[in-house]
Design a protein around this nucleic acid. Sequence first.
DNA 1: GCAGCCTTAGTTTTT
DNA 2: CTAAGGCTGC
Length: 737
Amino acid sequence: MSIENFDLNLAQQEAVEYEGGQLMILAGPGSGKTRVIANKITHLIQNKNIHPSNIFAATFTKKAANEMQERVEVLIQKKRSGLNIGTFHSLCALILRKYGKHININNNFTIYDGDDQRSLIKTILIEENLNTQIYNPYKIINKISKNKNKKLTNQLIEEFQPSAYERKINEIAYKYQNSLTKNNALDFDDLLIYCYQLLLSSENIRKDISSKYHHVLIDEFQDTNLLQYEISKLLSSVHKNITVVGDPDQSIYSWRSAQIENLTKFQNDHPLHKLVLLEQNYRSTKSILEVASNIIQNSTDRIQREIWTNNKIGDAVEFQNFEQGEDEGDYIAKTIIDYTKSQKAEPKDIAIMYRTNAQSRIIEEALLVKNIQYKIVGGLRFYERKEIKDILAYLRILQNKNDSVAFTRIINTPTRGIGKESLSRLIKYADESNHLLIEEIRLQITNNTAENLTKKEPLWKIRTKTLNGLKEFLNIYDALQQSVSEQSIAQTIESVMKLTNYKNTVLNQDAMTIEQQNSKIENINELISIAQEYDTKGSDEPLVEFLHDLSLVADVSDVKEEETNAITLTTLHSAKGLEFPIVFLPGVEEGLLPHMMSLDSKDDIEEERRILYVGVTRAKIKLYISSAKNRFIAGSSRSAKPSRFLDPFTKTMKSSPSMSHKDNYHKNFIAERKKILIQKREEHFISGMKVNHNIFGAGIIISIEERSDDQQLTIAFKEKGLKKLLASHAPLEIISG
DNA sequence: GCAGCCTTAGTTTTT
DNA sequence: CTAAGGCTGC
Ligand SMILES: Nc1ncnc2c1ncn2[C@@H]1O[C@H](COP(=O)(O)OP(=O)(O)OP(=O)(O)O)[C@@H](O)[C@H]1O
């Protein structure tokens, strides 16, 4: 028997046992949606004789998938049951590994993350001699992604009468997609789009794959996009059993092409579906729920829904407005100490949730001062750390020789005399003769041997330093190729370390402190220990699985379970689906939540409101919401009012005096910054004014947009064209008004 | 042509 | 403040 109680109320029970095929569960936070999915899966396996491998369950994060898998496997008392549970991306990767060959996808494909995408786009821009300022890689990637997720194609669709700029972007997108194919690589969106194309490629394939999935279940349905919708429809097209679970009030991923319309689309596409509403909240106190509904009720365009709870009223939610961001951090740290000292709560019961990753820093500092253990969710993910990406790049080229992004990353890491010029030559020659990069290196080295040099002047006469570097790289490559075919992944990683002398080169730079070095070495050891798990798992392609899983995973804790009793720091987005007895929500201010970047659009602001709503509804027992009048963002102080979403609570908001006991140096620092800011604000900009910019030169102010604590100026510069600048930041001098 | 220093710009959310 | 890119000495 497990400790956890798996009781269900009547509505939940009904949802679990419903056998009519299409089922939609709409329910507020904490109403047991996730529990229903877990129990339904268990019910299907135990009482309906469905084999675990015939179930397809999509969750929003890897973490949620792991938790659900554990829950189910406890209930059915079976490990490694073959249950297909994961994010859409990882489930699609699984399908593509198995069936991809039908649409010419090799099962050893590499998954490109944002970093790799950017790197690929940049290579294309350089080849095309295009400026990365004008052709912003982020924007291009974003456009390509939207196109895939919303328009369901990896071919960019021409706008009506495209401008020259747009046409160029389309061209880049086209080249990008070609490069991916050449590299035998798929970006995150490709995992979905190719899976979709695979299912559409032939009736037989569709039936073959879909007949396997007797039941399709999808959690967090309000945050799925059109592509995911279509995939789940196709996957459930044979057995026609599909259960979706969602809460429109918790849709917070529209920026990633999620569309809440999927809820109504589901209802329209399945006229015979059953709708179950869950209204009882089991998570939070009445006080917390009251605050939550006050926040969400003020939202526009919302169907009113009520949630209620039998839980007690509990402690009042605390609202505080601090002087400084530091005060806020100190207060949180102090309060946490009170909880742990009095043993009212353990560290793992406590979470701090914020809008942007950058906000964690100030909190971390406060926690460090008080020696409070914490773990950060998201932020700089394990897989994204430089040392990990370097090592993985060495593994990637072994698994997939076509992976030019990985080659480019490590051909000169550690530095071995192969610079920008040599690399672009290599790429050019390889491209022209249709060689793989590694083949081209081999060829160029041969052309440059002493013997061959006497025979024929080579196209590229390589300098000694570079030539030695290339030879060294080739030797490492060959040795690793040998290692990977004979040894485990873990051993191969050790070989990478040894052959590249990584610790004494990359990790031994002056700029790096001992602590930084140690932490990097720790990370690499962690990677080795994860590799060991894949080595002993007994799968057909351990290296492929290892690399795929790592790129689809948010953090180490997702692949490796370790017990820590530390408090959790997380963004509000990553907190989705989680719950904690005690929750702190710092930085609930204008400019942060709603975030500056969202203020231009009404829909975006409403999404920000829902982000706060999600945060509030994570708390079970006690909730602290706070803001700071001033805080440092990117080195300069910014002042802000409490968030507009807190307007209903202004009466209960406490203004806390500055308790900062930091040394004077820091105080002076803040004071100094303040002075500069005030000076800036006294400079009065008006439209039509002539100004001079440090870098951009002379220009005229075209328009001024008021921001919460600043002005955004649109300026036409003589030389540089239109630019948008923040009044407080821009080094501007007024010439004449 | 390369490597490391120094300047500069830019500040959301993630599979 | 930090990461990325430009610049300059080797
Ligand atoms: N019938 C029930 N009886 C007692 N506790 C329940 C019941 N159903 C759910 N719970 C508890 O309520 C809490 C919330 O459940 P769950 O996480 O499934 O909600 P959810 O609807 O998925 O929430 P959210 O949408 O906010 O992520 C959990 O702690 C769960 O164990």
